[in-house]
Design a protein around this nucleic acid. Structure first.
Lengths: 341, 341
DNA sequence: TGCGAACCCGAAAGCGGTTACAATTTCCCG
DNA sequence: CGGGAAATTGTAACCGCTTTCGGGTTCGCA
């Protein structure tokens, strides 16, 4: 495939009149000594010849690379896009390239991708939006991560769920609980929850937060008060429809995620249900669409960008001790909620 | 860094009782012959030992990799996120990993990233949202891309602007022209344009489309009818403010991009200007937020996902002949526009 | 001035694959 | 059944860089 001979370290060495070994040291080990002026000479030669080190050769020799892998559900999801932005920002600061892979919440695919990232000797693997509730898969993932980790790779997961590596733990349950308390304080007593697939740990946690928050005030959810939909705009529409077409629809709709709330809102508007007049709506996550929506959506804002940054920073720390960074969301009251009646 | 000896091709070869060379051929050249049953035996050994080829070694030997580089402005921008989604979808189908780098519209950074992707022997480099109007930078970029291209790499740019590689050309000017025609047909005669930085080729093209479209009906823009802002929500707010605080504000606001239109809308709402009652607003691009906004935004929808897919598909084609795929947007009339008065 | 210790540098052995080339075997057909 | 072509397999030379190891210098200090 090559056609134009590129300049190798060997060429630089010759041009500078030193051995390959010396050239290598001058170029990539700043702590190495060396005769006065030698380093400058090598650097000058490298610059003059336009030398660019071959990362693969380097990776092969050192068994490590200058890339990091980021595993997310989907780039198109603003939640992950924002988080990815944070990761990339910090990675850039450390001269690392980020390879993004999207699992679309498919377990086998996730596993395969992690293996491939490990094969590529990625400096770190960051798992965001992983954590599926499937024991066989979890075991396989842990095995793969463990092997990767033992061979020197660094692992970070956003939300717990893996046996190895640092963790950025988003307080889903706590945030949701506070949100619910706020709604109760507003006077709400009849709730409907638009939840997502229970396979997702995140969903379970948030749902638990809802239950706890309600229980704190002696309210319990009936079987029909929770509907399970896809984590998408369409899911939100479907969820709103299901809950609102009951004989006695709830006065407050708790969506498990902002994007779901946006969908719910659009269904309510399309069907002439006044928000927050007839029904209040809340989200979770803090994506930009939540504040742009009309009415703007009350939600728990997660510092997603910062979560990404933190994850990347953790990835650069030594494996031990294991760090666990807790991240809290902040309740943001907006126009989509009002006291009932 | 290593600690746990991984299984190498050598091990597989020994286990299968063949030479390294044969093992390599059986494993990575499906067209190679071989004694009956030999291939199966090697494959079986590989599977049994859990062999995973080292991509760096392979890349070093073949001077090509199984990764592609994607250069965008920012993952957080839904425009690019959607496009990236398309790229990733197709890349996955071909077993390729995608490395995303964000330039944040910084020319030197873009150049450096392209060089690094080339260093990494990426199978292809896809440039989206590149095309800055800076002749020194453009020259340097072309040089870098040309060298990469001659050494066997494949180049695709979304929108023209580079001298080498395939092109997915989005008809920005034409789409904008049609949009303007539609607004004129609606009865509009006084326009304000919220444009972006003129360094961006995309912005220039769309602006030209506006001018042409208006000129087709004998309307010309005054100096003050166009304001230049950042391509962001905040930019849109600022732009709306500038245009609406003139003594005789325009009756139709043409935003250069959806995200800008969303910002404009939010300023208008915050300042009690009725849309589309007092003023109509249009966007460009077709991001989800445009349809979720209230009122939903009239825009030209670009098939961004498909643009990404096409780009990735082109990247897999041989370099010659040079393909240039034209992409048209489709006008989507929504609630943000109405006849004036 | 003498003698280890510390330092500098180069030769060479990998890292884990691919592939040109040569050696061997198999095949086909006169 | 012989002989050359075709097919198969092995040997070894890379790909471009890092790093161990050891010989040769230089330095500090007695």
């Amino acid at each position: 495939m090559a056609e134009q001979p590129l300049v190798r370290l060997q060429d630089v060495a010759e041009h500078a009149g030193v051995s390959l070994a010396t050239a290598s040291r001058m170029l990539s080990d700043p702590d190495y000594g060396g005769r006065a002026g030698l380093r400058e000479r090598v650097l000058a030669s490298a610059a003059e010849l336009g030398y660019r080190p071959n990362p693969h050769a380097r990776a092969l020799a050192t068994a490590t690379s200058t890339n990091v892998g980021l595993v997310i559900h989907d780039v198109r999801d603003p939640y992950f896009a924002t988080l990815s932005g944070g990761v990339i920002t910090v990675a850039e600061r450390h001269d690392l390239l980020v390879s993004i892979v999207c699992t679309h919440r498919d377990a086998p695919r996730e596993l395969e991708y992690v293996k491939r990232l490990a094969d590529q000797r990625m400096r770190a693997i960051i798992l965001a939006g992983s954590a599926l509730r499937d024991s066989a898969h979890t075991a396989a993932m842990n095995a793969a991560l463990d092997s990767y980790h033992r061979s020197g790779g660094s692992v970070v997961s956003v939300t717990r769920g893996h046996t190895v590596g640092h963790v950025v733990d988003i307080d889903n349950a706590g945030g949701m609980r506070r949100l619910v308390h706020d709604m109760v304080a507003l006077g709400h007593t009849s709730f409907g929850v638009i939840a997502g697939p229970l396979r997702l740990l995140t969903v379970r946690d948030r749902l638990q937060g809802v239950r706890r928050g309600l229980k704190d005030h002696g309210i319990t959810l009936g079987r029909d008060d929770v509907v399970y939909v896809d984590l998408s705009r369409e899911g939100g529409q479907a969820g709103a429809q299901m809950l609102m077409s009951r004989p006695e629809p709830p006065r407050c709709l708790l969506a498990i995620a902002d994007v779901v709330a946006v969908g719910a809102l659009s269904w309510l508007r399309a069907n002439g249900v006044a928000v927050p007049g007839e029904v209040s709506v809340t989200g979770f996550g803090g994506i930009p669409a939540a504040s742009d929506a009309v009415p703007s959506i009350t939600t728990v804002e997660l510092p997603l960008e910062q979560v990404g940054e933190t994850a990347m920073e953790l990835a650069l720390k030594p494996a031990a001790p294991r760090h666990i960074v807790q991240v809290e969301g902040t309740l943001v009251r907006r126009d989509s909620v009002a006291p009932p009646h």
